[in-house]
Design a binder for these strands. Structure first.
Length: 428
RNA sequence: GCGGCUUUGGUGAAGUGGUUAACACACUGGAUUGUGGCUCCAGCAUGCAUGGGUUCGACCCCCAUAAGUCGCCCCA
């Protein structure tokens, strides 16, 4: 028990940290190009922020939050997502004062108490983007492009971008009502889940696995037919922007976002081979959120990407780069007298910028040579009594199996030129 | 939160109701006293997720718990 990480959490071990930093580099690179600046918000916030921001009645708020009372009796929640927190920080720090449009991105841990599965952790990592203060559909398009191009920059293919509009506070209630009117006399034919959804979120009935194939489904009213003029115009514009830059997408009138704050544009990027957890990125516009949290009415768009899902996809497609950082020099010390001088030399090599290693266990020469071999070091430096007496060192080229005596005063410089030379050689 | 499947050493794994739990890789040591990669030899699970139970006896049977995984739900 003591030696087990809590359920749904995972250590990112040295061998895979490189995968994460690789992805993070891609994130920072593309965000810089699109003009998004990093923000880091606390891992926990006041519970109420999420209750108000995400919405009571959502699964995330009602059953998935890690909530506890702190010692001052305040209700605190580990963030289940970062949009509400980013908006809170935006308001608290008056970021709107600098620019009409504030563009932020974040990378970090999120927490949801769900049943774990591959691609669904209790602590998971998201990269997300928020563009606050602009209502133009061009920003919707920009944000979507950023998501798409991020995934493309990693080399991922077979991704599907789905697009929808979920309307605004003016037209969504009308659509809800239209759906309820449509389904009211069909409740008997719908599954149990859909009967629950009828009141809570009738939009979800549309993509119910059990009922989706029912004959009457195709006669159900579509969101896009019920949008108000403003939402419709906005949605058309978003599509135009995307088409203009040649992004492929699919309209999915059944795409619904689970969080209350979404308005107008909703989108999702899926990678089907991930199975039940195929949604790699999701987002949309949330024009009502900022006011909900206590700011002036401010339009905004954003998305979040699930990083462990991205990593799973990269692994499936064999797109993870090699990131070995091999030892360049291995120091072999023979006998008690050689240990201190060898350690000194090791330090000089490292100080000179070389990746140097040695054995500390005082093992046999053979064992040390084996280690040198395993470390993949191109060079071994051998120091024994004889060498120390002469103030020299044996420099062995492990690839060529050649060795030569080098004065201890020259060894660092010689190695630097050798190692640089072999680098150059590798590149050519 | 619901249902299915899985769980043997550092890793991949074979295996049987009954004395010493295959095999491979990895690891450690050795094969002339100061030289690696190949080869050979040796060592390496008092234990088969955990806790109970059935049995003369269980890693193999039963129950519970945990973790993983697939699907549902939800979402990234």
């Amino acid at each position: 028990m003591l030696t087990n990480a809590p359920r749904g959490t995972k250590d990112i071990l040295p061998d895979s940290v490189g995968d994460w930093t690789y992805v993070e580099e891609k994130i920072r690179d593309i965000c810089a190009r699109y003009g998004y600046k990093e923000i880091r918000t606390p891992v926990f916030e006041h519970t109420e922020l999420f209750q108000r921001g995400i919405g009571e009645g959502t699964d995330v708020v009602d059953k998935e939050m890690y909530t506890f009372l702190d010692k001052g009796g305040r209700s605190i929640t580990l963030r289940p997502e970062n949009t509400a927190a980013a908006v809170r920080a935006y308001l608290q720090n008056k970021l709107y004062a600098d620019n009409a449009l504030t563009k932020l991105f974040y990378i970090g841990s999120m927490f949801r108490h769900d049943r774990p599965q591959a691609g669904r952790m209790r602590e998971f990592h998201q990269f997300g983007v928020e563009a606050l203060g602009e209502e133009s559909p061009a920003v919707d398009a920009e944000v979507i492009l950023l998501a798409v191009n991020f995934l493309k920059s990693l080399g991922l293919s077979d991704l599907k971008l789905s697009l929808n509009s979920v309307g605004c506070p003016k037209c969504r209630p009308m659509y809800r009502k239209a759906l309820q009117d449509f389904f009211r006399d069909k409740l008997g034919e719908l599954c149990k889940d859909c009967n629950d959804r009828f009141e809570r979120n009738p939009l979800r009935i549309l993509d119910c696995k059990a009922d989706a194939d029912k004959e009457f489904m195709k006669d159900a009213p579509k969101v896009t037919d019920c949008l108000c003029d403003e939402c419709k115009a906005h949605f058309d514009e978003v599509q135009r922007y995307l088409k203009d830059v040649g992004v492929e997408f699919e309209l999915d009138p059944r795409l619904v976002r689970g969080l209350d704050y979404y308005t107008k544009t909703a989108f999702e990027i899926k990678y089907a081979p991930l199975g039940a957890q195929s949604a790699v990125a999701g987002g949309g516009r949330y024009d009502g959120l900022i006011e909900e949290i206590g700011g002036n009415p401010t339009p905004a768009v954003g998305f979040a990407v699930g990083l462990e899902r991205v990593l799973l996809a990269l692994e499936k497609q064999g797109l993870l780069p090699e990131h070995a950082s091999p030892t360049e020099v291995f120091v072999v010390a023979l006998g008690e007298e050689a240990r201190l001088p060898a350690f000194q030399l090791l330090e000089k090599l490292r100080d000179a910028g070389l990746k140097a290693a040695m054995d500390y266990a005082g093992r046999s020469m053979k064992a040390q040579m084996k280690q040198a071999n395993k470390s993949a070091a191109r060079f071994a430096i051998i120091m024994g009594e004889d060498e120390i007496k002469e103030s020299v060192v044996m420099l062995k080229d492990m690839e060529k199996s050649e060795q030569q005596k080098v004065s201890i005063d020259d060894i660092v410089n010689k190695l630097i030129t050798e190692v640089k030379g072999s680098w150059k050689h590798c590149k050519e």
